[in-house]
Design a protein around this nucleic acid. Sequence first.
DNA 1: GTCTATACCAAGATAGAC
DNA 2: GTCTATCTTGGTATAGAC
Lengths: 214, 214
Amino acid sequence: MSSVSDQQGKPDAQPGDPQPRMKSGDRRELIVVAAAGVFGDFGYFGTTTDQVAKAAGVSQPYVSRMFGTKEQLFLEVLARSLRTLLSAFTAEIAAGTGPGLPARIGLAYVELLRDRGLLLSLMHAFVLGGDPAIGTAARAGFLEVYRLLRVDAGFSAGEARDFLANGMLINTMVGLRMSDEFETNDLANECLRTALPEKLDLVLNLGKEQRSDR
Amino acid sequence: MSSVSDQQGKPDAQPGDPQPRMKSGDRRELIVVAAAGVFGDFGYFGTTTDQVAKAAGVSQPYVSRMFGTKEQLFLEVLARSLRTLLSAFTAEIAAGTGPGLPARIGLAYVELLRDRGLLLSLMHAFVLGGDPAIGTAARAGFLEVYRLLRVDAGFSAGEARDFLANGMLINTMVGLRMSDEFETNDLANECLRTALPEKLDLVLNLGKEQRSDR
DNA sequence: GTCTATACCAAGATAGAC
DNA sequence: GTCTATCTTGGTATAGAC
């Protein structure tokens, strides 16, 4: 997946560099993806539209112009995150139900960590349930995931709970940057290993990236 | 537990009402408790010092004056939340280890929902692990809880994980205000019942309060 | 110890050029 | 479609009175 500005043969997002013109929809997608990363790190209120703009390599007013409000942008990030998650799960279900499904959906979930900020943006949305717009969308999204697990995937109520509980724990530990302590703290080490028996390396690599771009 | 201003025989926190003088430490505690509620609803960045001041019935500059910065205030809320949680767990351990301990600690955890904003403030802190000050404190707190479970309470790694995972799921559903949908949405209903086999009413009552003071 | 008034800054959104 | 310049608001922190 080459970065968009490669089509011009130029490096990404140089500060004052005017961006090449682009179809509105493509640029929109680009900004939403960049926004997911920033919202994942700082949450809805903690993120500025300028941070998003910088991450996407466009000007701050352009972000406002394109999405109207920061809230609208966040809602689009949320929608994209849920869409991606639901289709990843749906793909596993389509690949066959049966005793192996929970494990496969679990792996698919962890793989979503590759999509920078996807799960963390969701998590930030989930803890803002009191917000009129965000809370409504977040609840609906969570319930849609629950429905998919129970109905489409055929999980029992207990299986769905266990799955979601583990997911929330993983999200929390990623949000906590627990991987920062992986080598230096035995408890952190064990905690990560226990919560992520598979794909531990994914979280650790993620942690390195995060540390380097602060 | 009577509210502090009752000692004056007056109703709480009237808008322009100058607050009675009080020992600095008492007022501090009062503000930290009020702040926990607000931070729990809106998170660190989403909360204004003015909201906290209103909730505590003092003036906004007084909050700044007393805590220096919003960050310092949040760190004190975080510290108080962790202290309360750890001593609740410690009390259960002191009451006896053995096969019943996990269940008792689980109940003690859910009881913490009575302390408005306690678990939600923690949750907001956990997803801000990238913040230099908050992240550091949050990681240390989380690991201290993990240590207590593994060492003091004698949980196995798997038990500790299961316990924490369920805790994070409960926090998430509370943050999501899932209880808003309890009566109208069958999936939400089942999801809450499954995650909170005990003390479901506690979350539902909490939900009512939250809805009424928005 | 607590308030009122205010300075100061950061951030979201708008206007208008290109 | 995208930028620069700017208006406006809201929020933190400070000064100073009581």
